[in-house]
Every structure is written in C-alpha cells, then in structure tokens.
Design a protein around this nucleic acid. Structure first.
Lengths: 111, 111
DNA sequence: GACATGTGTAAGTTTCTTATTACAGGTGCA
DNA sequence: TGCACCTGTAATAAGAAACTTACACATGTC
C-alpha cells in the first residue's frame, strides 16, 4: 500500500472498509458481537485472543464504522467497555468500484 | 493471517474476495478493465505500474474470480494476453459474516 | 541484425499488518 | 493487604503483502 490512501476519498473509504472486514479474526469478532454486545475482556475470551490484539482489531472495525464502543459503569462500580455492531451493508461490483475510482483524486493522471 | 485460511471454507472464500478487491491498485485495475478489456502491457501503461507487479495483482483478482485472462493471437501474429472483468457482486453485512463464520470449521472451539 | 513490443517469472527488498509480551493503573471484596 | 476482575498502551518480534530489478524468450519491422 504505497500510495497515501487519502482516507477521505471515496476509494480510500471503500478500501478501509473492505480491509477492516477482510480478516478471519475480525469476522469472528463481528459474528460474536452480532449475537449480543460484549465487553472487551469477555469478547477476548470468546474469540480466544489477547486483549492487546483484540484492541487493535476493534480499532480497525471502529474506524471503519462497523462497531462502536462505549465505556459503561457496571452495577458493581467497575468500568467496562462494551462493544456492539452498528448496522452496515457494503456491496461491491465493478460499477461501484469504477465510480469510487473515478471520484478519487489519487486516480488522476498528472499530465 | 496466522490461521490456515483453508481457502475453501465460506469464510476463507469471503476473505479472499474481500482482500482481492480491498486495494487501491486493484480497484484501479478493475475500473480500467470495466471500460474495455485490455492486454497486459497496455493495462500496465494505463495504471502506471510494472508488468511484474501488475501480474501479481491480476493473479489475485483472477483467483478471486473478478477477472479472467485469455491468450490471444493478435492480427499481426503477436501473442497478447487479454484480461477482462467477470460480472460479480459481493455484499457484506453482519448477517453474511455471521453465517460465513458459523459455517467455517476454523471457527469451531476445540473443547 | 538491431530494435521495438509483447509474455512470463525468479529473487530480493521494503513496507505494512499481525501478534506477543510486558507493563501501569483502576475497582471491589475477603 | 492480597486477589480477582477490568481498561489501556508501548515495544517489539514475526509474518505477509507489495514492490523492484533483472532476467529469458518470442514476433514483426526497419
């Protein structure tokens, strides 16, 4: 990924979203969260990965807009960070891609 | 991508497809080919990349089923490899992902 | 024959992502 | 106080993907 990816361009956004979801780990995370929202440590146990690693994946999913996290104070007074999936649907076909590329500055040819 | 990815599982297939298209370069390639089919060298000129690199990208797109290449004998007798896009449409949402994960052996928890 | 244009790949480098380990700090409870 | 939970991040190792360079070989044209 050598080019800047200018994360606001249509293509950049699409790429970020696709990259975020194009991972077995993150798919498992999304699948798990699609059943019920969970706090980080609990989620880490279910998907069997370290919290450190999970945080990395959650950050990507959050940036892409697929999940959201809120810090909540549990009944006992302990703070827990709860993540849940946001509704989303992305469809890709040659049309969508051609449009995204055409609308992105990076694709312009400097004469 | 530490796990085997067992490229036939539903999740593995989905991941491969998404990874194939989640790239600015490959999107540009697809966009270019969506207008008209082109032979490799010509395509390389248009997207401004070395043939060697382009081949790598084309291979990924071909494996994912987004493009196809055929070796053709040009009018002048020179062999040219022509690539064209295959019709495709992939939609992702939490439903699709949950299903793919559930249907994939990698996701099973060894008691 | 020299040259332009094309296909195809192997080897090696760089760069990015993923994963591990090790911290620092918080609350509640026995 | 010690233990069991929890949040959060920094440093770094390991692995995968992207990219470069350099080859071998083939055809048509000047």
């Amino acid at each position: 990924m050598s080019d800047s990816l200018a994360s606001e361009s249509p293509m950049g956004t699409l790429v970020s979203q696709l990259l975020a979801v194009a991972s077995p780990q993150r798919m498992r995370i999304l699948a798990e969260l699609s059943h019920r929202e969970l706090h980080v440590s609990e989620l880490a146990r279910r998907v069997r990965m370290s919290r450190a690693l999970l945080y990395m994946h959650l950050r990507k999913l959050e940036v892409a807009g697929f999940v959201t996290g809120r810090l909540e104070l549990g009944d006992d007074g302990k703070a827990v960070k709860i993540f849940s999936v946001l509704p989303f649907a992305v469809t890709i076909d040659s049309e969508v891609i051609a449009r995204a590329v055409a609308a992105s500055p990076e694709s312009e040819e400097p004469s």
